[in-house]
């Protein structure tokens, strides 16, 4: 692992509090994920790829914006790995970079229909931009 990869990996592990080594690769997280079909990389792959230092691939994948934070994988993981937290950490690492907002406030306002609740707008603001 080069230094950049090492730093990214350490950051992801530190801020998520996830220990990917606890994973037994059973795939239950991916078996339960409602966004599975929308994701290029699936929850179990997040765990494995972070462990192997392939974080940039994940940061540059739209998969990070498809996690619903529904906590189903966190709840059902038999090893207590909490994949959802790792997805969140990688997403934050992406949007915290300069000019790396997935969508800005105007984009969000533009695509929102007239019925969306404030809760959705606020959630999108938090998930898509810094």
């Amino acid at each position: 692992m080069n230094n950049r990869v090492k730093t990214l990996t350490e950051t992801a592990l530190l801020i998520s509090g996830v220990n990917p080594k606890k994973c037994m690769k059973c795939g239950k997280c991916s078996g339960t994920c409602p966004s599975y079909d929308k994701m290029e990389y699936h929850p179990h792959q997040f765990v494995s790829m972070v462990e192997k230092g392939q974080i940039e691939k994940l940061m540059n994948s739209a998969s990070i914006y498809y996690c619903l934070s529904c906590m189903a994988c966190v709840e059902r993981c038999p090893r207590g790995v909490e994949p959802g937290k790792l997805v969140e950490a990688v997403r934050l690492m992406k949007i915290r970079q300069q000019d790396a907002n997935h969508k800005n406030g105007n984009d969000i306002a533009r695509i929102a229909d007239e019925n969306v609740p404030q809760q959705l707008l606020m959630a999108a603001m938090r998930k898509y931009r810094k």
Partner: peptide, 21 residues
């Protein structure tokens, strides 16, 4: 190869959703 996330009853079927790794 994979685990089951949920078993849901739909009519007289049990819908088993899991991953095929």
């Amino acid at each position: 190869k994979g685990m089951v996330g949920k078993v849901a009853k739909e009519g007289d079927k049990l819908m088993v959703r899991g991953s095929d790794l």
